[in-house]
Design a binder for these strands. Structure first.
Length: 562
RNA sequence: GCGCUCGUAGCUCAGUUGGAUAGAGCAACGGCCUUCUAAGCCGUAGGUCGCACGUUCGAGUCGUGCCGGGCGUACCA
């Protein structure tokens, strides 16, 4: 509905310009708002006030000109108003609102989807946890946000590729292999032989045990068998990585998060991408030698200091394969790439972009885009749980899913916008009381389904594609409020996709559920009035569909009974 | 020190790319189940939008400077 009115305004502006009644050369973007008060209509537009200066006319005069060229939208609009300092208010006709229910029915499980992305390719990288331990609560937030963002972008008409990047090379993986080796040899963490920076979590013992038992591991695209030899560090390394990747795969599966592509850091080395990037940077004159190290002059591209690429010991720092990795994304044709990461990685943003600029490959300065989520503070027993991966003290995603449930965990993570810090109170989430808003939304769906069961017993069914006269029964304020909210799902999805903010959908759902619960308490759906009963059943059928569609975008189930 | 980010009701948070009289949940108080699920509904109360300037028709939203919390500022990832 919002898009249809935006189109009307756009057409009117173009006509007015063609008739030279408007003289502004570059028109601003048309945005429609939802007025707070009903007497201000269904939508309002501030375009006249924005044009006022360049037109050198009072806003209300500009509004009059626009309205002169605005058609009635073939029955869409009841009336338009100029109000306040120069708002144009739009009043949509009852019949146009009622007719939107037919569109929802036609859309079915696809209702809500839009064509905003025009099928263009976008790649989203998220989670990308190091295979050095189980996924923790912070990864959970990243997984929920990234996965939902993918679902939303897909619904908004984008061709989405989901990707997971494994750092299976480098110092941390060496630490992992050494830690497992020490456990194989029975060395404890307080032993002087225990490696500096080793991983102390209990799961390391499990890996060591499996290694000594010569187990085989199949993870997403790896198959590894342990030799059981504690001296074979290379075998320990590949086995440990495979073992932990399998654990992560299981966690993600339990969270209903899937990926299309897995890229291994080690493959960037083996395919020569890392070397070729370094050669390119040297050839482009952006690198120099100093203190036995090779540096990138990243200060040429907005960084606050130059960065080491090749360390004194000859190995590369993490950000070189990062640049090589992103070069590969670019070469795969992704002109749009979104990286969802924890905000503790935000220093990489400037560096990776600087490295890509230094390649002189025509990559835009602000590519790739980033969604950085803030840290999650975990509360348990009224105290903050300190997260330390190496000490092995943290809350795992698996624990959370087992204790709180997948639906509640996802909803909880998705309630806050990514760049706000959040507190995850495990005790509170475990209580499964009405304090958890996911139940509120799911309950609305279950309640509606229950009404259908009840109606069926009494011989009522929601009609398929009802007569207009049936839809006309839906004309009370509560009816209209419901219809308007249902219609807003596609707009909400577009907004989420534009701003990379899935939390808007959770707020939409809460509002829709609230609207329904209120409706339920005020109106009896099944009554003596057959026509009214059928009209309301039809409305609730569309409501249930809308709730289910929106929940499915969050990866949350819509139970029929609770 | 510098960079990013947050600061809105007692608590947890929204606020639709600058709009009309700042919202919701929880907690508190008061009502509503012989009728479609009370995991619900209705009502009351609760605010100097961290502080101060600035930009303009108009600022919780944008800019600058302070104050306070978080993260980063590695030849870790």
């Amino acid at each position: 509905m919002r898009n249809r009115i935006t189109l009307l305004v756009e057409t009117a502006l173009n006509k007015a310009c063609a008739a030279q009644e408007l003289i502004t050369s570059t028109l601003p973007i048309i945005t429609l708002g939802h007025p707070a008060k009903p007497e201000h209509g269904d939508f309002s537009c501030n375009i006249a006030m924005l044009l006022s200066k360049s037109e050198r006319k009072a806003p209300r005069l500009v509004a009059e000109i626009i309205l002169k060229y605005l058609g009635a939208g073939s029955g869409l609009l009841l009336k338009t108003d100029i109000a306040g300092p120069g708002f144009i208010n739009f009043f949509v006709s009852l019949s146009a609102w009622q007719a939107t229910l037919l569109e929802i029915e036609k859309g079915g499980e696809n209702f809500g989807k839009t064509t905003a992305g025009s099928g263009k390719k976008v790649q989203v990288e998220f989670v990308s946890a190091n295979p050095t331990g189980p996924l923790h609560i912070g990864h959970g937030r990243g997984a929920a946000i990234g996965d939902t963002l993918c679902r939303i972008l897909d619904a908004a008409g984008w061709d989405v590729t989901r990707e997971f990047y494994y750092n299976d090379a480098g110092v941390q993986i060496s630490n992992l292999a050494l830690s497992v080796q020490m456990r194989c040899l029975g060395v404890d963490t307080d032993d002087p032989r225990w490696p500096e920076g080793g991983y102390q979590g209990d799961y390391i013992k499990d890996v060591a045990k499996a290694y000594l038992a010569k187990e085989s591991v199949v993870a997403s695209d790896q198959h590894t068998t342990a030799s059981g030899d504690p001296e074979d560090l290379e075998n320990i390394r590949s086995f440990s990585v495979a073992w932990l990747r399998r654990e992560q795969d299981l966690d993600l599966d339990a969270f209903d998060v899937k990926f299309d592509v897995y890229t291994l850091e080690s493959s960037l080395y083996s395919e020569g991408r890392v070397d070729s990037v370094v050669q390119k940077l040297i050839a482009n004159g952006h690198a120099y030698e100093q203190d036995n190290a090779l540096w990138l002059r990243s200060t040429d591209f907005g960084d606050d200091k130059d960065r080491v690429m090749r360390k004194a010991d000859g190995s590369y720092t993490y950000f070189v394969p990062d640049v090589a990795y992103h070069q590969s994304k670019w070469e795969r044709g992704f002109t749009r790439v979104i990286n969802e990461q924890g905000s503790d990685h935000h220093s990489t943003v400037t560096r990776v972009r600087a490295g890509l600029q230094a390649l002189d490959a025509g990559i835009p300065k602000d590519w790739p885009e980033y969604v950085l989520h803030q840290m999650v503070t975990v509360m348990r027993g009224g105290e903050e749980v300190k997260i330390s991966k190496r000490a092995g003290s943290y809350v795992t995603l698996r624990e959370l899913i087992d204790e709180v449930g997948r639906d509640a965990t996802r909803f909880f993570f998705l309630m806050r916008k990514p760049d706000a810090q959040m507190v995850f109170d495990i005790d509170l989430a475990k209580q499964q009381t009405n304090e958890n808003p996911v139940y509120y939304v799911q309950y609305a769906h279950a309640r509606i389904c229950s009404i259908f069961d009840n109606a069926a017993e009494k011989g009522f069914v929601a009609p398929l594609t009802p007569e207009l006269s049936t839809l006309e029964c839906l004309s009370t304020d509560e009816d209209m409020k419901m219809i308007k909210l249902l219609t807003a799902l596609p707009d909400t999805i577009d907004d989420c996709a534009i701003h990379f903010e899935p939390h808007r959908l959770t707020y939409y759902l809460s509002e829709l559920a609230s609207c329904f619960h209120s409706f339920y308490n005020k109106n009896r759906v099944i009554s003596e009035d057959r026509k009214l009963t059928e009209a309301r059943l039809y409305l609730l059928k569309r409501t249930a569909q809308t709730i289910k569609n929106a929940l499915s975008l969050l990866g949350i189930s819509a139970p029929e009974r609770m």
